[in-house]
Simulated scan of single mutants.
Amino acid sequence: MLLLLAASACGNDRVLDPAAASDTVRSTGTVMVLDDGGGPQLCLGAIAESMPPQCEGLDVTGWDWADHPGHEKQGGTRWGEFQVTGTLDDTTFAVTDAVPADDASVPPTEEEVDFSSPCPEPEGGWRVLDPERTTFETQEATISAAHRLPGFSDVWLDQTRVARPMNDPRKLILNVRVTGDPDAAEKELRKTWGGMLCVSRATVSKEELEGIQEELAGQPYHVSSGVSLGVVHLRVLLDDGDLQQRLDETYGKGTVVVDGAVFESIG
């Protein structure tokens, strides 16, 4: 995988770019357009919840606030939420239509994260092996030890077996993924952890995932990304429909997952 990363750094610095230019795009949800006196911008990423709000994003051309009387204004800043249509490059959005958020037709999105353990249920069922080493203190010590394991990829808590997750160390399954030998990693973690434990194999280490994330974050069509559950989760400006395939071919299947795009192509 280290060789893969080295190769990608040389030849895939624009892997997020759409394979072909799209004539017209529409935002998949509502977006904030904000003008603090320097010209209108379409906000991408985090928006500071100040008054007035603050953000960074794409320059917007063809925008006239007189066409959008429902916008808000404070001091020298104007802003509003819209579903927008227009044309896009990696630095500028040329708007042709904007529907106020209250009138936009945007389907709700729900993201479900699977925190269940990949390990099969052990013989005799899931159970605590040593209650004295199944405490908040030993849990934190074991998580710290997991981060020091060779090829560490991820750690999380599986509380799907209890009706009401309460962060009780005796009721959760501590999950660790490593690129090396899971048995050797489990033996090391059992020095401090007496609770339920699942150690599984990862294909990419956390260090490598963070390297991939850093590489993608430097590309123009990147909006946001993060590492979670052994995967780089990615949001982009525009997904041409083939982006996931290109990412799989570049970094390995499932290493980077496209969670969404700001725009969709409509013609």
Rank of each mutant, 00 (worst) to 15 (best):
E186H: 03
T203G: 14
D181Q: 08
D17G: 07
G37H: 07
S228F: 07
A20E: 12
V204T: 14
E56G: 12
A261V: 02
P120Q: 03
A19N: 06
G151E: 04
M166F: 02
H68M: 04
L197C: 03
F136D: 13
M1Y: 11
I266Y: 06
E111H: 02
Y221C: 04
S27E: 11
Q213V: 04
V236N: 04
A6K: 12
R190F: 06
Q245W: 15
P107I: 10
S117P: 01
V223R: 06
C43H: 01
V31M: 14
A20Y: 12
V84G: 00
D35A: 05
E186S: 07
F93I: 11
G76A: 11
W65P: 01
L34H: 00
P40K: 03
A6P: 10
H68Y: 04
L234D: 00
E264H: 07
D114N: 07
G29D: 14
L174R: 01
K191H: 08
P53F: 02
E249K: 13
G195M: 01
G80F: 01
T30R: 11
Q244H: 08
V99E: 00
G194T: 08
F115S: 03
E214P: 00
E72V: 06
Q213S: 13
E132T: 06
E186D: 09
V199R: 00
D102P: 00
P40L: 03
P108K: 04
T30K: 04
S224T: 14
E56S: 14
G75R: 09
T24D: 05
T91D: 13
E208D: 15
I266A: 11
G45I: 09
F152Y: 15
C10P: 04
V256A: 06
L238W: 07
R127Q: 13
P107Y: 12
P40M: 06
W63C: 02
D64V: 05
G39N: 15
